Measured scan of single mutants.
Amino acid sequence: MQAFVKTLTGKTITLEVEPSDTIENVKAKIQDKEGIPPDQQRLIFAGKQLEDGRTLSDYNIQKESTLHLVLR
């Protein structure tokens, strides 16, 4: 499924993900596309910070959801 990641600069990245993907996995995909190390990434969805060990389905993130990427 497709999900979108919006950065603070307003850029939107499109990712191909599965509901079973972990947040860690998603961060690795963002690193592949953008070169941002996962340890600098914080992903926010519905106002919550997403934890590495959880999956997209844990957070009820469905296709075409938009996550927000904040860098630390």
Score class of each variant (00 low, 15 high):
residue 65 S to G: 07
residue 64 E to W: 13
residue 40 Q to L: 13
residue 61 I to N: 02
residue 72 R to S: 13
residue 45 F to P: 00
residue 23 I to N: 01
residue 72 R to I: 15
residue 63 K to Y: 08
residue 2 Q to D: 05
residue 51 E to D: 10
residue 43 L to K: 00
residue 15 L to Q: 00
residue 45 F to Y: 13
residue 29 K to C: 03
residue 55 T to N: 05
residue 32 D to K: 12
residue 68 H to L: 15
residue 35 G to V: 02
residue 18 E to H: 15
residue 20 S to D: 11
residue 49 Q to R: 10
residue 12 T to V: 15
residue 31 Q to P: 01
residue 68 H to R: 08
residue 24 E to V: 07
residue 40 Q to R: 12
residue 65 S to D: 13
residue 72 R to T: 14
residue 29 K to M: 13
residue 3 A to V: 15
residue 14 T to Q: 09
residue 31 Q to G: 06
residue 34 E to P: 01
residue 38 P to W: 12
residue 16 E to T: 13
residue 12 T to M: 12
residue 55 T to D: 03
residue 61 I to E: 03
residue 25 N to S: 14
residue 25 N to W: 09
residue 63 K to A: 15
residue 42 R to N: 13
residue 15 L to V: 09
residue 44 I to N: 05
residue 46 A to W: 08
residue 56 L to P: 00
residue 35 G to Y: 03
residue 31 Q to I: 02
residue 58 D to N: 06
residue 21 D to I: 05
residue 52 D to G: 06
residue 10 G to N: 06
residue 19 P to C: 07
residue 36 I to C: 04
residue 46 A to L: 12
residue 61 I to D: 03
residue 22 T to E: 02
residue 34 E to C: 12
residue 8 L to Q: 14
residue 43 L to Y: 02
residue 20 S to I: 07
residue 33 K to Y: 08
residue 14 T to R: 10
residue 29 K to W: 04
residue 71 L to H: 09
residue 52 D to F: 03
residue 55 T to H: 05
residue 41 Q to L: 06
residue 5 V to K: 01
residue 35 G to N: 08
residue 61 I to K: 03
residue 53 G to L: 08
residue 31 Q to L: 10
residue 52 D to K: 04
residue 67 L to F: 09
residue 71 L to P: 09
residue 54 R to W: 10
residue 26 V to G: 00
residue 49 Q to N: 11
residue 14 T to I: 14
residue 54 R to S: 08
residue 20 S to M: 10
residue 53 G to P: 06
residue 2 Q to P: 07
residue 32 D to Y: 11
residue 31 Q to V: 03
residue 29 K to G: 03
residue 7 T to N: 05
residue 63 K to G: 14
residue 39 D to Y: 12
residue 1 M to R: 04
residue 57 S to R: 13
residue 55 T to Y: 06
residue 50 L to H: 00
residue 32 D to H: 12
residue 40 Q to F: 09
residue 30 I to E: 00
residue 15 L to M: 05
residue 50 L to F: 02
residue 33 K to A: 12
residue 3 A to D: 01
residue 6 K to N: 06
residue 38 P to H: 11
residue 19 P to S: 09
residue 19 P to F: 09
residue 31 Q to N: 10
residue 3 A to Q: 04
residue 60 N to F: 07
residue 16 E to F: 13
residue 10 G to W: 04
residue 62 Q to I: 13
residue 21 D to C: 05
residue 55 T to P: 05
residue 15 L to H: 00
residue 13 I to S: 02
residue 29 K to Q: 10
residue 11 K to G: 07
residue 68 H to E: 11
residue 43 L to D: 01
residue 69 L to A: 01
residue 6 K to L: 13
residue 63 K to P: 15
residue 34 E to I: 15
residue 63 K to T: 14
residue 59 Y to M: 03
residue 60 N to I: 05
residue 35 G to R: 06
residue 2 Q to E: 07
residue 68 H to K: 07
residue 51 E to C: 09
residue 2 Q to N: 11
residue 4 F to H: 09
residue 21 D to K: 01
residue 1 M to H: 05
residue 53 G to K: 12
residue 67 L to I: 13
residue 16 E to I: 14
residue 45 F to K: 03
residue 37 P to Y: 06
residue 7 T to D: 07
residue 18 E to P: 03
residue 47 G to D: 07
residue 32 D to Q: 14
residue 58 D to P: 00
residue 9 T to K: 10
residue 50 L to A: 02
residue 19 P to H: 07
residue 4 F to S: 04
residue 8 L to M: 13
residue 60 N to H: 09
residue 24 E to T: 08
residue 23 I to M: 03
residue 42 R to A: 11
residue 59 Y to C: 02
residue 9 T to M: 11
residue 66 T to Q: 07
residue 17 V to R: 00
residue 52 D to I: 05
residue 37 P to T: 06
residue 24 E to G: 12
residue 10 G to K: 03
residue 58 D to K: 03
residue 22 T to L: 11
residue 24 E to P: 02
residue 66 T to D: 05
residue 18 E to R: 14
residue 11 K to P: 04
residue 18 E to F: 14
residue 23 I to W: 02
